[in-house]
Design a protein around this nucleic acid. Structure first.
Lengths: 159, 159
DNA sequence: ACAGTTAGTTCCAATTCGGAACTAATGGTC
DNA sequence: GACCATTAGTTCCGAATTGGAACTAACTGT
C-alpha cells in the first residue's frame, strides 16, 4: 500500500495522518501556532526546501487545516492561517512537545516552557476523561467497533 | 536541512518527530496499543513494505519507544513491546484519533469508540491544565524561552 | 525430503527530497 | 529607464527513499 492512499483506511488516526502525517507538516503547524503565516518565514525557520513547503502548505489548505488569505493585492500575496479545525490540533502538538520535554531534552533542559496564563503555572497536560475527570491510561480504554466494520479493525488473538 | 538531522534542533516537538514523525510510524504505534507485537502482524495489518517496517521498528527501538524482546529461542524470535516512554505517547494518539473522528469520519461515523472503562462513557479528551483544571486553548498559553537559547526560538514581529 | 513459520534482507524501478537557480508581479531608487 | 529588492512560488537535477516482489536464515513438523 502506498502512503498516499492511507486516507482510504477506515481509521481516524490514518485519516488524520494523511493530512498532517508527512515529514515537516507538524513543524509547519508548530510555527503556525507561534504566529508564522508567510511562505518565506516558514521556509527560513524550518530550513525545508521551497517545493516541499509548497506541497505541505497546499495539502494543509486542501485538508482544511489552514486557509490561504490574501493580505495584499498588487502584487497579490497570500498568507496561511489556522482554521478552527487547525487550532483543534493544539492538544496533539502540546502533548508531543511535552513528551519531548520529558524524554529528549538535553542538559540545558526544555527549550520552551508553556505557561498557562490564567493560573501562571507551567502546563502539565494529562489525558483525562472529561466525563468523570479521572486521568486515563491505555489500559483504561475499551474499544468498541462500529458495526459497519465489525471484525475488520481490531487484531484477533490468532494474530 | 535534511529531515534526518531534525533531532539536532533545540525544539522538543522536532526531537519527538525525529523518532515518531516518519510516515507509518504512528500507525505502527497505533497497532502497538492494539496489542500487535510481531513483525508479520504489523506488516499484514499496515500493508507497509517489509524493509520500511524493519527500518521504522529499528528507529522506535533505538529511540526507546519499543523494546525488542525474545519470545522464543530455537529459532530466536523477537517481538516489539511498548516501553513506559512509548505508552506515554497514548495522549498524542488519542487526541489525533479524536480529531479524525470529529473532522474526517465518513457517513458511517467513527470506526472505533474509545470507552473509559471506569465510568463507561466514551472518552472525550480535552487539553486541561492539571494545576487549575481549566481547559486550555492556544491563546491561553504564554511561551517562556529557556535563557540558553534566548531570542533564537520564537519568531520576531519583523518576520 | 519437503512444506511451513517467522523475521528479516536484497534487488530494482518509480517516486520524493535537498539544494540551487529561475520566474512572475510589483514597488522603490539612482 | 535601468536596476535592485520583495514575496511566493516553480523548475531542474542528482541523491535518497519507497513500493513491490523475491530471497535468505533458522528452525519445526510430517
Amino acid at each position: 500500500m502506498r502512503w498516499q492512499d492511507i486516507d482510504q483506511q477506515p481509521c481516524s488516526l490514518a485519516r488524520s495522518l494523511a493530512i498532517i502525517g508527512d515529514n515537516w507538516t507538524l513543524l509547519v503547524l508548530r510555527d503556525c501556532f507561534l504566529g508564522v503565516r508567510r511562505f518565506d518565514d516558514f521556509q527560513q525557520r524550518l530550513g525545508v526546501t521551497r517545493h516541499v513547503l509548497s506541497d505541505r502548505l497546499r495539502k494543509l489548505a486542501d485538508g482544511g487545516v489552514l486557509e490561504k488569505v490574501a493580505y495584499q493585492e498588487r502584487p497579490l500575496r497570500h498568507e496561511y492561517r489556522l482554521t478552527t479545525m487547525g487550532r483543534d490540533l493544539y492538544p496533539v502538538i502540546a502533548h508531543l512537545a511535552q513528551w519531548g520535554d520529558k524524554y529528549l531534552a538535553g542538559d540545558a533542559g526544555p527549550p520552551l516552557v508553556r505557561v498557562h496564563r490564567q493560573c501562571g503555572e507551567p502546563l502539565e497536560a494529562k489525558l483525562q476523561c472529561s466525563h468523570c475527570g479521572d486521568s486515563v491510561e491505555p489500559k483504561d480504554i475499551r474499544l468498541e467497533e462500529n458495526p459497519h466494520w465489525a471484525g475488520q479493525l481490531l487484531p484477533t488473538k490468532a494474530g
